[in-house]
């Protein structure tokens, strides 16, 4: 009886694993498509996203302009596609930066321990104690508008989360026998970190980063919406929504088109993040 049950559960596990793999493939493909759109935006957009034609302003969606046009008669569809570059590529750059910085800080601090660790962790507590976006607003306002400054502002407030994850993982790996064996093999500290610690803490950090892409997309768009990110006339989803918001009731497509783009990309990246988590942690 129990062996029958066991077979069933093993089969269920296999099915689950297979489902996760299928989901991973689907969402990864979708995410890659999004990134490809961002990279090849210039070739994909049907019109020049910056060409103004006031005679065409606020055209409703039609066969010629499937997302309509904005106040200056620019094709919304082209602007949404080109906006992917500022939105998605800068989000990915942001996530890469905070992952690298946070992991480096957390791993080194956890590895060294003692006073260094205490100081680094109090500094990260300091950043975590502020409401994130409010602090980012302050930093962005200090630095002035621009995509790069928005990335810096969000990076400044977001790295501590990664430092925390990397540190706690490092602390648990550091005491394991294989790290002690590596010390006995004559590894120096950088060798221990790169050969033994980082490969073993990579999973949780990757999951954190994947789950963060969606949040970061929204926060970058949020900063741009408030005028602290991308500056006009650069096409960026947040600033496009912001510029159309006064016309929401009369010409809703000016706000809805970039809004839907943000919605779709956030959903795709969040689902991808969830799936990567399920895949790496099959429990």
């Amino acid at each position: 009886m129990s062996s029958v049950n066991r077979q069933v559960s093993v089969r269920q596990l296999k099915v689950k694993k297979c489902n996760t793999k299928c989901r991973l493939i689907v969402f990864a493909t979708l995410a890659i498509c999004l990134v490809a759109v961002a990279v090849f935006a210039d070739r994909l957009c049907p019109y020049d996203p910056y060409a103004q034609d006031l005679s065409l302003s606020y055209q409703a969606p039609s066969a010629a302009h499937i997302m309509g046009t904005d106040a200056y008669g620019r094709d919304m569809f082209s602007r949404v596609i080109v906006g992917a570059r500022a939105s998605i590529l800068s989000t990915l750059a942001l996530v890469c930066i905070i992952t690298l910085v946070g992991t480096a800080v957390g791993t080194i601090s956890g590895f060294i321990g003692g006073k260094v660790d205490a100081i680094v962790m109090r500094v990260s507590d300091f950043f975590l104690a502020f409401p994130g976006l409010v602090f980012a607003l302050a930093v962005a306002a200090l630095l002035g508008g621009g995509v790069l400054n928005a990335i810096i502002a969000l990076a400044v407030i977001s790295w501590p989360k990664y430092a925390r994850v990397a540190r706690s993982q490092t602390l648990s790996v550091k005491v394991s026998s294989f790290v002690q064996a590596a010390v006995l093999a004559g590894d120096n500290p950088p060798q221990i970190i790169f050969r033994h610690i980082l490969p073993n803490i990579f999973g949780p950090i990757l999951v954190t980063a994947m789950l963060d892409i969606g949040t970061m997309t929204m926060e970058l768009a949020g900063l741009s919406f408030l005028g602290l990110g991308a500056q006009p006339p650069i096409a960026e989803w947040g600033s496009m929504m912001s510029s159309g918001r006064s016309m929401l009731q009369t010409y809703p497509w000016v706000v809805l088109s970039p809004g839907i783009a943000i919605f779709i990309s956030v959903v795709i990246f969040n689902l991808l993040g969830d799936t990567v988590r399920d895949y790496l942690d099959p429990k």
Binding site: S176, S177, F178, A181, A182, L184, A185, G186, D187, Q191, R195, H196, P199, N200
Partner: peptide
């Protein structure tokens, strides 16, 4: 637990030799 789960056993055994 005495071998790094992400590396082969051969890597673990040979590590001290490589360091020398």
């Amino acid at each position: 637990e005495s071998f790094n789960p992400r590396k082969t056993l051969g890597y673990g055994i040979g590590e001290s030799l490589k360091n020398r």
